[in-house]
Design a protein around this nucleic acid. Structure first.
Lengths: 351, 351
DNA sequence: CTGAAAGCGCTTACAG
DNA sequence: CTGAAAGCGCTTACAG
């Protein structure tokens, strides 16, 4: 009942041990008709005893499916490390894939064009059965390529029509919740320190923010950044230097919000008495600091899992809706937001 | 010059287009002897024009190598997301692998036993050429399995003999730097809020900490945790409640250090006037807070890259040393460490 | 230096 | 329900 010395255990070994043909083993293990239930059970038992598993490459070659899904991330290494978003997303994706015995091939690249090159190579090599796409940018070359290359794909969190199946966010709704929260507290001038405007979700949050603020009678400002702590400090300092400074600022990630908190704190600006702060994408980090940050929370893991499940469905030939809503956002109100101070005076000199 | 309709482009198409045999194409593309340089050049050109790439599964099956390396992480999803360590490590690994055209298969599991199950499956399926191992625990089942399964592996950051090639850290040296720094500032009682004691590197840092403190004439304390912010707050509160409270605390990750900073700050304890804080594994987070945290910095990306390079060398049959030093640690002194306050009095009531 | 052929380990029509 | 055989797309001895 052991493999021949030096060799790999193959389907032939299992067939021999079970006293059936190799095709019977294949049918039995893959849950296909063509074998009696008695034979199927015996084959499964024998395979288990021997510890045989179908050779991945052989199966891929004959079945024309790899059992692997690809994820290419086009963000700087520092961003990937600092924002828990990506690891949470990967965790969610992986959990779903693992459940179905599918592997995750991960590659990190510099930009969307490099991303397309990876897709092109993977498609030519038959390396993956499909890919998961995130961080769609304006004029993103990926959707068009993926449609043309016949490489199945699901876009995560994209807000615009990409012509690909998508798990869509509810950013617009979430932006409204944030603005309403600030309006109810009595804020009149609110600002948004946003991420890189090339990202579609950033652009759409920007527009939603301005629209929601105006319709609530507030005066909005938007400052674009590159998602880094340094850019956040600079943007925040710029906002606070104005005569008509905002009394509340919404940041596009947790790192920028926390960096701003520390920076304004060091200048004697009190949060939330002098300035209210909101972070987008709640994280452990937001609860780590003092005061804890009010934040827009999403179940990123669920987003990843949902996208993975959809891709697997797509690969198994199921009909899938083009758009499916992702996990809902909700505002987690903590201590960093409160009613604005009495007047334009700001800082420790006040009171 | 195009593939036949509906079909995949194969080596036969390239051979036909170049007017040679398929074996000549294979030799030419793989840089093997057996073709003239003129033929090789023409084949490469034709393959490029057609956009042909060897089919991954076919190559794996015949060449008995997958061009893929595996990484299994056995940590809770929250830890993976919160600590930038993992994404930095993956970034470093991936950069090195990508350069050599090797893929990274990533899987997340609950514990070391589940990790072994994945290795077992991968080995049986011929899914990867080798694996990278991190977070070695006491009585870790993985090294023994990997040696037995003939699955090539390199251990990252392990400090003990695992019988596998390792990229080793310099934790002992780093601990000494931290302790010396605190001793020079005049601290007498120092504590270490360490991670889960099951991890070998944690255990070894614990021992090194106690030894270094004693030999410097200091009084050390060690409190084990599970690496979470909550455990850090509890451990820190416990330390500060003692009569002979420490005047400096070293935390085993950035999240715990930042959580403790916020917690003691909320209680009126000033950092560094009343309490000095040190974080292990510097990160963006450590520079985000106020005061910025003194921290032990390592080039995690370089660690990942080095381990990946070693594994690739191992796979290509090169002789590799069993132990190779990883990137050196160094102490980054910032504002969270200073000389201890004048007496046992602590908190806002003082002075 | 080149070509025809076997073989990697599966899956899947196809005939019994 | 079962078995013999072709085929997936490469690599690699082996004979010319």
């Amino acid at each position: 009942m052991t493999a021949r010395a030096g060799g790999r255990l193959t389907i032939a070994d299992v067939a021999r041990a079970a006293g059936v043909s190799t095709s019977a083993v294949s049918y039995a293990l893959n849950g296909k008709p063509g074998v009696s239930e008695a034979t199927r059970a015996r084959v499964i038992e024998v395979a288990g005893e021997l510890g045989w598993r179908p050779h991945s490459a052989a199966r891929s070659l004959s079945a024309a499916r790899t059992g692997t899904v690809g994820l290419v991330l086009a963000r700087p290494a520092s961003t990937l490390g600092d924002e828990s978003f990506y690891m949470q997303l990967i965790t969610g994706i992986e959990a779903e894939l693992a459940e179905q015995g599918t592997g995750l091939l991960l590659q990190l690249v510099a930009d969307e064009d490099a991303c397309v090159e990876v897709y092109r190579r993977w498609a030519a090599q038959g390396r993956v059965d499909g890919v998961l796409v995130t961080d769609v940018v304006r004029e993103d070359p990926r959707p068009a390529f993926l449609r043309g290359a016949a490489l199945p794909a699901v876009v995560m969190g994209g807000e615009v029509a990409a012509g690909l199946p998508r798990v869509v966010g509810d950013d617009q709704w979430a932006v409204q919740q944030v603005v309403e929260h600030l309006a109810q507290l009595g804020h009149q001038r609110i600002a948004r320190v946003s991420g890189h405007p090339g990202f579609l979700h950033v652009h759409q949050r920007d527009e939603a923010f301005v629209a929601a603020a105006r319709s609530a009678g507030l005066r909005p400002q938007v400052v674009p950044t590159d998602f880094t702590a340094q850019a956040s400090r600079r943007a925040t300092a710029g906002l606070l230097a104005h005569r008509a400074r905002p009394t509340a600022v919404v940041y596009d990630n947790d790192v920028m919000a926390v960096a701003a908190l520390a920076a304004v704190h060091a200048q004697g600006v009190r949060v939330p008495e002098d300035l209210s702060l909101v972070a987008w994408d709640d994280s452990t980090l937001c609860s780590l600091v003092h005061p804890r940050l009010t934040a827009v929370a999403r179940d990123i893991r669920a987003l990843g899992a949902l996208a993975a499940r959809r891709l697997l469905a797509l690969l198994s030939g199921a009909q899938v809706e083009v758009d499916e809503p992702g996990p809902p956002s909700h505002l987690v109100v903590r201590e960093s937001t409160a009613a604005p101070g009495p007047g334009p005076g700001l800082g420790p000199a006040r009171g």
